[in-house]
């Protein structure tokens, strides 16, 4: 499903070069729920951005769902992102002037559908995340947990191949965070979606059936298989 080969990415900060990823190779199977752990600066968010086509590597290759991202033009990459990938962020990234329903519908509206066409799918997703009664509320009328539920519904509205989550519980209390992770795992299982979630929180990471640890831009741990055994 996801294939990274020798991916290198360096950021510039003024004159200094800050290495973010120093040759990462990783394969993620279809339908897997993979957590990527690491301290801040370990390169985990960079890796997520590269997989999601939000940024491009300096060298190395990335393919998602059989598609080599490096071969896509900017426009193709935008479409790929919009149609194949659902994003869930730490700070929800909802549009404040839109209702829950409109926020969820947004990826479909951007793709040329009308709100009328989008509505059945949007309603059923809002029901699915437990917000059927909140569809006309705006983000500032919702709690943090509810906003993240809206963001999850928005991520799922296009029925993506892949869900990418960047610290999805980083801004929630521990009980609400648990509910959100449970929801993400459950919806991914039902729709057989692949999930890659970046987190610095070990308890959140434990929702993944596989836990990859990054340090200084390299993979230093990869826990998969049953009962914590090494591959």
């Amino acid at each position: 499903m996801i294939r990274l080969r020798n991916v290198v990415k360096t950021y510039r900060q003024g004159r200094a070069a800050v290495p973010a990823l120093q040759g990462v190779s990783l394969d993620v199977a279809e339908g897997a729920f993979v957590s990527v752990m690491g301290a801040s600066g370990s390169g985990k968010s960079t890796m997520l951005h590269l997989i999601g086509g939000l940024d491009v590597p300096d060298s190395g290759s990335i393919s998602v769902g059989g598609q080599q991202l490096g071969r896509l033009s900017d426009d193709e990459l935008t479409l790929f992102r919009r149609r194949k990938i659902g994003f869930v962020f730490q700070f929800f990234n909802l549009l404040p002037t839109l209702t829950a329903e409109e926020n969820v519908a947004l990826p479909l509206l951007l793709d040329g559908k009308s709100l009328h066409e989008a509505r059945p799918r949007v309603e059923s997703l809002l029901e699915r995340v437990g917000l059927g009664a909140r569809r006309c509320h705006k983000p500032d009328e919702l709690s943090g947990g509810e906003m993240q539920r809206v963001a999850i519904a928005r991520a799922l509205v296009v029925d993506p191949l892949l869900v990418l989550a960047d610290e999805p519980t980083g801004n929630l209390d521990s009980k609400t965070g648990e509910e959100i992770l449970h929801l993400m795992k459950e919806t991914a299982e039902q729709a057989r979606q692949t999930v890659v979630m970046v987190t610095h929180d070990a308890r959140a990471a434990a929702y993944g059936e596989r836990i990859v640890t990054l340090k200084d831009g390299r993979v230093v741990g990869d826990l998969c298989g049953e009962e914590g055994e090494r591959p």
Partner: peptide
Amino acid sequence: VHEQKEVYLGHLRRLTQRKFALA
């Protein structure tokens, strides 16, 4: 220390899967 951390992560993961199944 690194190996030990992986052991604990495995333990966390096992407990979490159990919790998920329980729910």
